[in-house]
Every structure is written in structure tokens, then in C-alpha cells.
Design a protein around this nucleic acid. Sequence first.
DNA 1: AAGGTTGCCAACCGCTTGAAG
DNA 2: CCTTCAAGCGGTTGGCAACCT
Length: 311
Amino acid sequence: MRKPTPDSVIRDKGNHKNKIKFRKGLWSPEEDEKLMNYMLINGQGCWSDIARNAGLQRCGKSCRLRWINYLRPDLKRGAISPQEEELILHLHSVLGNRWSQIAARLPGRTDNKIKNFWNSSIQKRLKNNNLTSTTFSPNKCSTVSISDTVTGGMIMPLHDYSYNVVNTCIDSSSSSSHFNPFPPVDNSFDANGSSVVVSLNLPTYVTHFGTATGNRGGLEDYGVTEQCLMGFENGICVPFEVDDINNGVMSSNYVFDKKKVINNNLNNTESMKLEDMVGFGNHWQGENFKVGEFDWEGLLANIKSLPYLDF
DNA sequence: AAGGTTGCCAACCGCTTGAAG
DNA sequence: CCTTCAAGCGGTTGGCAACCT
């Protein structure tokens, strides 16, 4: 840890009218304590007021950053876990450099932390190995190809798993390790005359779905493998579009549990078994699914419902 | 042991957005 | 509308420690 900036480094903010001098540089333990105490007692408010009232010679912006990135009680210290790392990879492939949105799905982690982690650790490995990731662009397909040797054991091996729902659905014999999160809109596929598209293509989550029912003849028959990556024992939420047998379109967010699907829009108060929802067993050959269109805005809206995971 | 290099990460900077007046 | 200000965000910088030569 760096030493706090000496008082002598207090600099003029540049506001020559008011000549307000704000301290810059590293925070001292005393400053931390002041801000922490003030925040715990008074809670969040206007940051420039907080800076003033807490007796800090810092600008509000600096206080806000210090609180968010370091002092917040709910922050998780320590290294990024492999599970978190994989989730970051996933989310980055979908969201690109939207660090705050990625951070919002990793409880206790800040956008700064994730950004730093990405820029140092992951990008280095992406560079040095076969792990390639193209930053997502809404109108382009991004591609991530992953091999299990590239991460020095830090990232779970992925190529064993069918990482591309659409590709593998098109050709279930494919052993491709390519992950294409955003296939072309018309990249539908046909499974015995029916079509399936998972509107947000996060195959890891969907793979969980594959064996959720324990039914052979579930989604894995469309090329979705049965692996449950990342150890999401308690299910995970993914936007999912289903046109059920009664032609009632279900387009919502569901938590995929091992045994059931929970409608996340109902605050988990209402749940149904996967079979109930999509007609597994009786209608498993995809007849109840419909092709969804890629909608970036919708995706962003939907992805807000991704889970806040606590590893 | 000393100097150089590298990696990590806290903090800053500048830009955008949205609300308020 | 226009201006001002606070908040939020992503990119970048720079200090420190660890590692290497």
C-alpha cells in the first residue's frame, strides 16, 4: 500500500475564484476514518457536502470514489475468484467495457477493481494465449475462443463444454470451442422442424438448464451440454423466450434452478418446474420454442436481471 | 546489493448525463 | 431553452512492491 500523500501536496483545484484547495493523492487512515464515520452516521448525500461536513480537505468526487472503491462496508476484499473471473469473461463478452454494469453483477466488487483486473490479469492472458475476446459491439458478433490451457489453471476449462448454443444447435456434432454470444439474427436452427433460440446466449447458464430436469432429451438434444459450470448451485437468471404450447409467449427472466425455473419477475415467489414451463418430456423436441430476434436494447434491459452472485 | 522492469491498483481526469433553477 | 452542478462512468496515470538481472 502506498503511503498517504503528505499535506504539502495539497493543491489548488484550479478554481481561482474560490481558491479552494483540495487534497489529492492517497488517503490517510485519518481521512478514511473521518469519511467512514460520517457516512455511517449520516448516510449518503451530496458528496461535496459530505466532504465539507466530514472535515475533509477533499473534493466530493474524491470522497465518493474513496467510499465506493474502498470504504463501503459491503466491499469484498481479496482476489477475484475463478468463478468471478469466468463471470467477468462472460459479462465482458456481452457488455464490453461497461465496467459498472459488470460490477453490478459481482457483489462486493467495484467497477474499478474489475477494470483493473481486466486490464492487467485477463488481457495479459488473452494476449499471451489463445484466449481471445472481441469486445462486444451491438451490431457485430463477438467471438470468444477459449482453450483450457490458456489460463494457467485460473479459468475453468471451457472447451469441454458446448460453449455456443447456437453453433452446437446447428450442428450438434460440432466440437467447436467457439463461443459466439451474438449470432446473426437469422441464425436460427431447426430441430425436427422446430426452432430454438435463447435470446440471451449465455450458454453456461443454459448448460445448467440442460440437465436441470435430468431428462435426457432436454435441451442437450439441441447441442446444449449437461455441464453446470461455475457451481451455480442456486440457479441463475437468464432472459429466455419461450412460446409455449398454448401459444402464449413467455418472455421473461427466469432463474434456472436444478429442478425448477423461477420467474424472477415475480420476486421468486412463483415458481414452476422446467417441464411445466416448456413442456419437457411431452414436448421436448423444441416445439414450444420460438426464434427470438436479437435486440440490443432489450438485451441490456434484460441483462439487468442477471443475478447478483455471491461466491 | 543495486538498479531496472513489471504488475497491481488507488486515484485522478475528462467526458456524459440528468436534474434543478 | 440555457446554464449550472452533481453524479456516474471509462480511460489513464503514477506510486509502490515484487521480481528479475
